[in-house]
Design a protein around this nucleic acid. Structure first.
Length: 234
DNA sequence: GCGACAG
DNA sequence: ATCTTGTCGC
């Protein structure tokens, strides 16, 4: 497996106002009229990030799975300095530099990218998954563990049940029950994938646990990379 | 103005 | 996100 170290881009936004302006500038490039890859085929990549705010270290992981078998095909990690504070609505600026480096370090194409967070379901309709999709051109979706500021009715209890995730009357995503009677996950479109397909991919990735295998694998790997970075400070 | 608020 | 032990249940 490859691990790389990344610098924060020289032109990376420093203020919340500048970061919001970047979102406003990139939002028009999101593609929402493509269905995206067929669920259960090709490859699906999970990305996630872990932090050590104390030491100003961030570690990202990208784990490529075979979409049909969910077997791990490839992995890569990247470490760097924290590029932005956590601000709800600006998560992408905290995660993207390191995530991009991990994706670039992969030895094969990622296929569909599954993000831990939101895409369209975002105050300005440009969450992490949208941002990552526009920067890479890859099909992306967001699968979050919380409804953020959006509203929804509880889906029916059986796995596979869904209900709209709403911003007022606008459906920005869906609450998807991935396990019988267990709290749903919150799926939204990133780039070049339809909402129906995003939900289908999410169900294909959750044969055993609430969260997608992609997210679970990436979460475990980035935590491991963070620990390794702490043991080998640079 | 106050509280809520992906990770 | 992260700090953290045991515990209840399939």
């Amino acid at each position: 497996m490859t691990t790389v170290t990344v610098p924060i881009p020289a032109d990376w936004p420093t203020t919340e106002a500048r970061a919001r302006a970047v979102q406003d500038g990139l939002r028009a490039r999101v593609v929402l009229d493509e269905p995206g890859p067929t669920p259960g085929t090709g490859r699906v990549t999970g990305v996630d990030v872990a932090y050590d705010d104390e030491r100003d270290v961030v570690a990202a992981a990208a784990v490529v799975l075979d979409a049909a078998t969910l077997a791990v095909v490839a992995e890569a990690t990247a470490v760097g300095r924290i590029s932005f504070p956590y601000v709800a609505g600006l998560l992408a600026f905290r995660e993207i530099p390191t995530v991009l480096a991990a994706l670039d370090a992969l030895p094969c194409p990622p296929g569909l990218v599954v993000c831990d967070g939101y895409g369209l379901a975002h105050p300005r309709r440009f969450g992490l998954a949208s941002h990552l999709g526009v920067l890479t051109g890859l099909p992306t979706i967001g699968v979050a563990k919380n409804p953020f500021t959006f509203t929804h009715d509880a889906p029916d209890l059986p796995r596979g049940s869904t209900s709209p995730l709403l911003a007022g009357a606008e459906e920005v995503g869906r609450a998807v029950r991935t396990r019988d009677a267990v709290k749903p996950v919150f799926v939204s479109v990133g780039h070049r994938v339809s909402l129906d397909n995003a939900c289908a991919h999410t169900l294909a990735l959750t044969p055993a646990y609430r969260l997608p295998e992609t997210t679970r694998r990436a979460d475990a790997l980035c935590r491991e990379a963070l620990r390794a970075a702490a043991h080998h400070p640079s």
